[in-house]
Design a protein around this nucleic acid. Structure first.
Lengths: 138, 138
DNA sequence: GTTCTTGCAAAATATTTGCAAGACG
DNA sequence: CGTCTTGCAAATATTTTGCAAGAAC
C-alpha cells in the first residue's frame, strides 16, 4: 500500500511532508528519529510542520512513537498498517538503533486487585547483532 | 534506613534538598512528579537544584525515573534501597498515578538472533482501583 | 579549609500557538 | 472555492551551564 493510499484511506490530505514521512518509514526497517527522517526527506520542512505531521499520523495510528528514557524519540509505522498493535521495542545501547519486535507479544504481569489493564509498553535494551559483532569494549 | 544513612552510605553530602526528596518518596507509596515532590518539601528549592538532585540520586540508584509517554516524569525509590532492580510500572489513565509493581518480574521476549539483552522497561497502563470504583464514564 | 552544593542568571533546546499565504481536493 | 496544511514568528516550557556564595564534612 502506497503512502497515497494510506493517506486517502484515513481522509488526510496528501501532502509532501506526510508522504515523505510514511515512505521513509516504509523504506526503513527500524524506527527513526525526527532528525533521521528529516535528513531523508527530499524537501526541507519546518520543524513545526514535522511536529504537526507526526501528531496527525500518530492520531490515525499510521505511525507510532517509541520513547527511550525520555531522551530519544523515534517513530515507526503504526498498527493502522498491518503492524501488530502492541509489541516490544528493542533499543541498542551502542548504536541507538530502535527496532519493533513485532513478532512478539508483551507479557502483562498480574496487577493489584481491582486494577484494570488497558495497554502495555515494553522496551528491551541491549546490544544489536551488528554492534555485538564489532567487539567494542565499553 | 533514614535519608541521612542513605546519603552517607553513598558518600553524598547530606543536604536539605536531597534529604527532603528521599523522605518524601519514602512516605509516598507511589511514584511522584517533580511538582508533587516540590510541593511536599518544607523549603523552596530552585528548579535547577531539583534537576541536579534528581540526577545525583538517580546515578547512585537511590531513586529511579519512570517516564510515561515522554509526557510525564515521576520518581520512586531505587534499587540501592532494597527495591527490586527491574520491575514493571503501572500508570493510571484517570488519575495519572504511577506505581511500582515491585513484586513482579518483567518477562523478556526472545530477541532476534545475535542480540544481547541488558535491561527492560515495562509500563502497564490502565485504571487503578480507586478510579475504577468511582465509575467515571470516559 | 577544601570540596561539593545551591541559587541566580543566562544560554540552549524543545514544544506549542496564531495567523496569513498557499496547497489540496 | 472551502477547508486543511504550511512556514514564519513569537510565546512557552524544559533543560543545561557558569559562576560566586554558602554549606557540608
Amino acid at each position: 500500500m502506497s503512502a497515497f493510499d494510506i493517506l486517502s484511506r484515513h481522509k488526510l490530505k496528501r501532502t509532501a511532508c506526510r508522504e515523505g514521512i510514511i515512505n521513509t518509514l516504509i523504506d526503513a526497517s527500524i524506527a527513526l528519529s525526527e532528525d533521521e527522517i528529516k535528513s531523508k526527506l527530499a524537501a526541507h520542512f519546518d520543524r513545526t510542520t514535522l511536529y504537526r505531521s507526526f501528531k496527525t499520523l500518530e492520531e490515525k495510528r499510521i505511525i507510532h512513537k517509541v520513547v527511550v528514557d525520555n531522551l530519544m524519540i523515534k517513530y515507526a509505522l503504526g498498527d493502522a498498517l498491518s503492524k501488530k498493535a502492541e509489541h516490544p521495542h528493542f533499543y541498542c545501547k551502542r548504536c541507538e538503533m530502535v527496532q519493533c519486535l513485532d513478532s512478539t507479544d508483551i507479557e502483562v504481569p498480574r496487577l493489584p486487585h481491582g486494577y484494570a489493564f488497558s495497554e502495555a509498553e515494553l522496551i528491551i535494551k541491549g546490544v544489536c547483532v551488528n554492534c555485538k559483532s564489532t567487539h567494542y569494549n565499553e
